[in-house]
């Protein structure tokens, strides 16, 4: 049986206590939310924190405020399962409910949290392996090694952002609050992510992702999320397409936000494609084709997930087109 390494568990009740613990314990400590990412990583010895700061007792992290008209603030410990069935989220941010409902499997969604899914460790087929497996390749730069086996000449790590909710929150223009001993810091969701497989979050040491803020949807606004994976459940995305458009009264696109997941170390905003769509109609097949082509250019799949990278790149184009066609329909 794979077992956790030895660690010391801390159970703060207040957010301030949790932040203080993380600050005081330093890099040897990691926060634990739903456990569905950190615990497998610990069992594979990818992460071996001497101290685990359990967040489940921190009630503030399950708080909820606001509504679709004013915007909704969700505590980071909101379970994905409750998100996928949440009446308000389903009504106002159905793309987020769909993304949450496409994560992993029912029992895992009952455990996993929205904050945890945003902070999901980047994934790579050379990294998400047991300690002996990684020893047999001489490790990789993300943990204990020197080389990135995905691109051995590279100076950086190419591990993949594999969150389903992250691209959606980026496309929705959501914001997140990071809480530390020093106080709160509220940033756009997109700004939480960095284009580096190792330092993939801009979360600072000692900070806890505490809340997610969903902006109220505006009239004419629609969003969707499509996920590509081998099987109908459990699998991480090899591609996620989050799209939000605001359509004018005449049906033309006034604003577009396309974000691709699982094709880089962070959710990749397809800015050129998004700009191109402004003023165009989604019912126009040529518009969809050109936007898909442009969007797929930001997809930088590497050979470190399921499926071949050439196929994933090609699939990105098709999946963006499908997302846009869905929004047109």
């Amino acid at each position: 049986m794979m077992r956790l390494p030895r660690f010391r568990y801390h159970a703060p009740r207040l957010l301030s206590e949790a932040a203080a613990l993380l600050a005081d314990l330093g890099p040897e400590a990691m926060p634990l939310a739903g456990g569905t990412d950190l615990l497998p990583n610990m069992k594979r010895r990818q992460q071996t924190p001497a101290h685990v700061v359990g967040l489940r007792g921190v009630e503030a992290l399950s708080a909820r405020s606001g509504d679709p008209a004013r915007g909704l603030t969700l505590g980071a410990m909101t379970r994905l399962a409750s998100l996928e069935q949440d009446g308000q989220v389903l009504a106002a941010w159905p793309a987020l409910a769909r993304a949450a409902g496409l994560v992993a499997s029912p029992p895992l969604r009952n455990m996993a949290t929205l904050g945890g899914n945003l902070c999901l460790d980047t994934r790579c087929t050379y990294y998400d392996q047991s300690e002996p497996w990684r020893a047999s390749i001489g490790y990789c730069m993300k943990r204990e090694g020197e080389v990135c086996w995905v691109a051995p000449g590279s100076e950086r790590c190419w591990a993949v952002s594999s969150s389903d909710t992250a691209p959606v929150l980026c496309a929705l223009g959501a914001e997140v609050t990071l809480t530390s001993k020093a106080g709160d810091r509220r940033i756009p969701a997109q700004a939480l992510f960095a284009d580096d497989g190792m330092q993939y979050l801009t979360r600072r040491p000692g900070e806890i992702l505490s809340a997610i803020h969903l902006p109220p949807p505006r009239p004419g606004e629609k969003a969707t999320y499509l996920k590509l994976r081998r099987r109908g459940s459990i699998d991480f995305p090899v591609l996620g397409v989050a799209a939000r458009v605001k359509l004018g009264a005449g049906g033309a696109v006034e604003e577009a936000h396309l974000v691709l997941g699982a094709v880089g170390s962070r959710p990749q905003a397809a800015e050129e494609a998004s700009k191109f769509l402004v003023g165009k109609r989604l019912g126009d097949a040529e518009v969809v084709a050109e936007a898909s082509r442009l969007a797929s250019q930001v997809a930088k799949p590497m050979q470190n997930t399921d499926f071949g990278l050439a196929w994933r790149k090609q699939a990105a184009r098709e999946w963006v087109a499908r997302a846009l066609r869905e929004l047109a329909g």
Partner: peptide, 23 residues
Amino acid sequence: KLSSALVHVGPSMLDYKSPLTLD
């Protein structure tokens, strides 16, 4: 050049794809 490693691509229930109910 860098390694003589010859490893299983993914010796796990996640990486070895076995059909689930929806498949």
